[in-house]
Write a protein that binds this DNA or RNA. Structure first.
Length: 123
DNA sequence: ATTCTTACA
DNA sequence: TGTAAGTA
C-alpha cells in the first residue's frame, strides 16, 4: 500500500508518517515511481509509534525501543531489559514535567481565585 | 487523484 | 505538523 492508504488505516497524517521515516522509525520500500510502498505490517508499526509517542517518548528513544518490543502485537509488552533503565529515566522526566505544570497551575489558581484583589496584593 | 520534496506567516 | 508550490 502507499502512504495515503496507510494514513487512512492508522489515522496518522501522511505528514507524520513521512516524519517517522525521517526519524528512522519506519522504513518503507520504494516503487520505481518513487512512491513509498508499505506492507500490512506497517499499520501495526505506525500504531506502536503512536502509542510510544503518547507515552511522551521522543523519536530517538522510540527508535531504539521499537526493535526491542517483546510482543509486537502488544505495545505495552515489556521491551528488552537493557532498555528498562532508560525508560525509567524517561518516566522520571515525565514526573518533572508534571511537577512544573502543577506549579504553574497553582500560580494560575491564585491569580484566578484572588482576582478580586489588586495585582499588587496577589504577587 | 496521489505522491514527492522542500520550505515557511 | 499543516500547508503551499511545482512535478512526476
Amino acid at each position: 500500500m502507499r502512504i495515503g492508504e496507510l494514513s487512512r488505516l492508522t489515522g496518522v497524517s501522511t505528514r507524520s508518517i513521512r516524519y517517522y521515516e525521517e526519524q528512522g522509525l519506519i522504513v518503507p520500500e520504494r516503487q520505481l515511481s518513487g512512491y513509498r510502498a508499505y506492507d500490512e505490517s506497517a499499520v501495526r508499526q505506525v500504531h506502536q509509534i503512536k502509542v510510544l509517542l503518547s507515552a511522551g517518548l521522543n523519536t530517538s528513544v522510540i527508535a531504539e525501543i521499537l526493535p526491542c518490543i517483546a510482543d509486537p502485537d502488544n505495545v505495552l509488552a515489556p521491551p528488552c531489559p537493557e532498555l528498562l533503565d532508560g525508560l525509567a529515566a524517561e518516566r522520571a522526566k515525565l514526573s518533572e514535567s508534571i511537577d512544573r505544570l502543577e506549579a504553574a497551575r497553582r500560580i494560575m489558581d491564585t491569580l484566578i481565585v484572588d482576582s478580586d484583589k489588586p495585582f499588587s496584593a496577589r504577587l
